[in-house]
């Protein structure tokens, strides 16, 4: 199994940390992982993206031009990455702030109302965990227990009291993910 993922959105949305948790979850189940950020002048408010690869085998290129899954969280990223999803692959996006919805006919498309759900949960910062939940529902490449273990590993101990809140967010993301187009 090899899953090649791009996660793209605004800086500050938790794009990089979502990728990190996913990578840690992979390690927890003894897989190979790579986490490659676009680390340029990106900052809060700018665009941020990270390529995460989880595989049973040694990972060659950490830099890719097409992906099994694109998780897209703003319009700029949609413009840039919709075309990079492999035919038959998955595009998961938050419709909040999207003016031009995906139009490809050869990929699976799902929506996650991450921003709205995080607001409903009264914890805006768990937005990325809602989105992660949606992804894991569609592609359960890592087991839920390992995600929680990954979360523990990637969060400093002083934030461990927030883990139940993140767990709730992941679970609600799993529940509310919406199918738009299934091949």
């Amino acid at each position: 199994m090899t899953e090649e993922i791009i996660i793209a959105g605004f800086g500050g949305q938790g794009v990089l940390s979502m990728g990190k948790i996913l990578a840690y979850s992979g390690i927890m189940q003894d897989q190979e992982v790579s986490w490659m950020p676009a680390y340029g002048p990106e900052m809060r408010g700018g665009t941020a993206n990270v390529t995460v690869i989880i595989s049973d085998d040694r990972i060659n290129s950490p830099v890719l031009n097409s992906y099994d899954t694109a998780i897209i969280l703003n319009q700029q990223s949609m413009d840039k990455f919709e075309k990079t999803v492999k035919p038959g692959g998955l595009l998961l996006y938050d419709p909040n702030g999207i003016s031009k919805h995906p139009s490809r006919k050869d990929i699976n498309i799902y929506q996650i109302e991450g921003a709205a759900e995080a607001a409903r949960l009264k914890s805006g910062k768990t937005f990325n965990m809602v989105v992660l939940g949606a992804f894991l529902k569609l592609k359960p490449i890592v087991e839920f227990d390992n995600v929680i273990k990954g979360l523990k590993k990637s969060l400093p101990e002083r934030y461990h009291h927030l883990i139940p809140m993140n767990e709730t967010a992941i679970k609600s993301g799993m529940k509310i993910v919406k199918e738009i187009q299934k091949l």
Binding site: E32, V33, W35, P37, Y39, I59, P62
Partner: peptide, 10 residues
């Protein structure tokens, strides 16, 4: 290089 420096792996 910058890629290997910034990249996270196991």
């Amino acid at each position: 290089d910058g890629a290997i420096g910034q990249m996270m792996e196991k």
